[in-house]
Write a protein that binds this DNA or RNA. Structure first.
Lengths: 114, 114
DNA sequence: CTGGATCCTATTGGATACTG
DNA sequence: CAGTATCCAATAGGATCCAG
């Protein structure tokens, strides 16, 4: 679901949390970001292979959202076979601790079943 | 969107991240958890007022998911006017650093516009 | 290679009425 | 008070075809 600007008009800082989540929401965003941690930059096709399972549409769409949110940057090379590289911006990189914390949580909590 | 078990069958630990996100996904889950940080336990109506904007259906539904994921517990009092209290489990509380990190990120990144 | 545009379906989530 | 059930609208996301 799309979390738009929270209607929370109060002083409640749950607002900030919503703000952060709104950036990461979407089935693939976090995955895209995650994979961008593994390399300085990735090309479109690299990302598509990395995320694996993502449709072209989603990769473009969610990538664009992330770009709009200033999390990832896009560098286009004006060459014959189009070449575009994507990478994390300052804000994107700053997201690492948070994602790491989530990942740690997933690992540490009462082991599911497997 | 519902993030079901990631089909990622590889050794890639993006899986863990997905796992964590799947628990928090849903428009209100993080908000519910967030508000449960503010008190040891909250009653149904308390939560409803706290989250504010959430429909009864969503509160029940998402709360139940969180319960199923072992993030929050539910204590029913067999009294005349039904009384049920909700609180965070061990795993739920362990989620705090992660959510805090996200919140910090939201605050620290290039100030939007407001 | 990158990515835009459509069509289409599953899911999400909101409103409301009803029950113990 | 807490929870359920149903009807409905909005949206996310997948497949596919087209274009620079």
């Amino acid at each position: 679901m799309k979390r738009k600007a929270a209607p929370t008009s109060q002083a409640c800082s749950a607002q900030e949390l919503e703000d952060a989540l709104s950036v990461l929401d979407g089935r693939w965003k976090t995955l895209i970001i995650y994979h961008l941690f593994t390399a300085p930059v990735l090309r479109f096709s690299d990302l598509r292979r990395a995320v694996e399972g993502i449709s072209q549409k989603m990769l473009i769409q969610q990538r664009r959202d992330l770009e709009a949110d200033g999390v990832i940057f896009r560098k286009v090379y004006p060459v014959v076979p189009p070449k575009v590289e994507y990478g994390l911006t300052k804000d994107g990189l700053a997201l690492r601790p948070a994602l790491q914390a989530l990942q740690d949580w997933a690992k540490s909590r009462t082991p599911p079943k497997a």
